[in-house]
């Protein structure tokens, strides 16, 4: 059979939404595809009422400037970085954004620490607190920034859960344990792992808008129920998995609640699917999340401005020494 080509609709400056490494080695995840049904076909969801408020949680991160440290001749990688997390509460008739104060960190690899650096920046002073990580090299710096964001996201998610929010949608994998039996789901835009065998995976391509695959269980330290659903009908020119997201919720809520939640997401998440005119990662980057990210990124401040002031800070330090 000749090679057929289809388009990946995401803007190329972002990585692809589909990044399955076919040659992946190592332990395969423990997946049970038959927790809901043995009959693997695209499922029309039972209609479930949309919750009055849905909270979407997300965070952004930005490296302001990289630094190279030197300890006794050993190179230490690090970076000044800004992180911000926030939530959008969407309800019929309007939505509101609650953004937290941005976090300024000095990410350092190899477990190094440094006193906080105060950078005067116009009317404000930015205090970059050191955030060490055991990981090494440039990857360690990346890890330190990411973990800072993840922690802040989790803290916010937990807080929303404690506040008794009806439904919370977290961007990415669900890495924390909700205290209440609230509807907390993780929304994964980028498909990295192949959890299903060919036979079941073939169902994903057949999904229509507002349908989902049956639930499958992924065993890991916090086991989850997961499913794929299609947000929008792809164009004929797009590849078969375009417009598909994976959703997960913790196993602890029970299979019945999970099925209901899966139906709810299939019914209502497509409402939030973005348009390619609007978002380079449409439709998976949902409107509320895209809007939140814009505002969070804005709340970090002007990158040029911050860079200049970090440079000025160092210049003064050196001049004073």
């Amino acid at each position: 059979m000749p090679l057929t080509l289809r388009l990946d609709p995401w803007t190329p400056t972002y990585e692809s939404a589909l990044q399955i490494d076919e040659d992946e080695t190592g332990p395969q995840p423990d997946v049970d595809p038959f927790v809901e049904t043995d009959d693997w076909r695209a499922r029309e969801p039972q209609f479930v009422e949309r919750p009055a408020t849905i909270a979407f949680v997300d965070g952004v991160q930005r490296v302001e400037m990289r630094v190279i440290g030197d300890r006794d001749g050993k190179t230490v990688y690090g970076a000044f970085a800004s992180v911000a997390v926030g939530a959008v509460f969407t309800r019929q008739g309007g939505s509101e954004v609650a953004a937290e104060t941005p976090l300024r960190i000095l990410a350092l690899a190899d477990g190094e620490t440094h006193p906080a650096v105060s950078v005067p920046c116009g009317e404000a002073t930015l205090e970059f607190r050191s955030r060490p990580t055991a990981a090494t090299g440039l990857a360690g710096v990346q890890e330190a920034v990411q973990s800072a964001r993840r922690e802040a996201e989790i803290a916010l998610g937990e807080r929303l859960d404690e506040q008794g929010r009806e439904m919370v949608v977290v961007d990415g994998r669900l890495n924390w344990q909700p205290k209440r039996k609230a509807m907390v789901i993780g929304l994964i835009k980028t498909i990295h792992k192949r959890y299903l065998d060919d036979e079941q995976a073939a169902v994903i391509a057949t999904l229509r808008q507002r349908t989902r695959t049956p639930l499958f269980r992924i065993g890991r330290d916090r086991a989850v129920y997961s499913w794929y659903l299609r947000l929008t009908e792809g164009r004929a020119i797009d590849h078969a998995w375009a417009g598909v997201v994976r959703v997960e919720t913790l196993e602890t809520i029970g299979i019945e609640a999970a099925v209901k939640l899966a139906d709810l997401t299939a019914c209502h998440l497509p409402t939030f699917a973005s348009d390619s005119m609007h978002d380079p990662r449409a439709p998976q980057n949902l409107y509320p999340i895209g809007g939140l990210e814009d505002q969070l990124r804005h709340s970090l401040g002007d990158p040029e401005w911050i860079r200049r002031h970090i440079e000025m800070h160092f210049a003064r330090e050196i001049a004073a020494a």
Binding site: T90, T271, Q295
Partner: peptide
């Protein structure tokens, strides 16, 4: 960014100020 955002905002889909 777009004029049509007014409808998304009214439905609560797009967060705007």
């Amino acid at each position: 960014r777009f004029d049509s955002d007014v409808f998304r905002a009214a439905e609560g889909v797009l967060p705007v100020g």
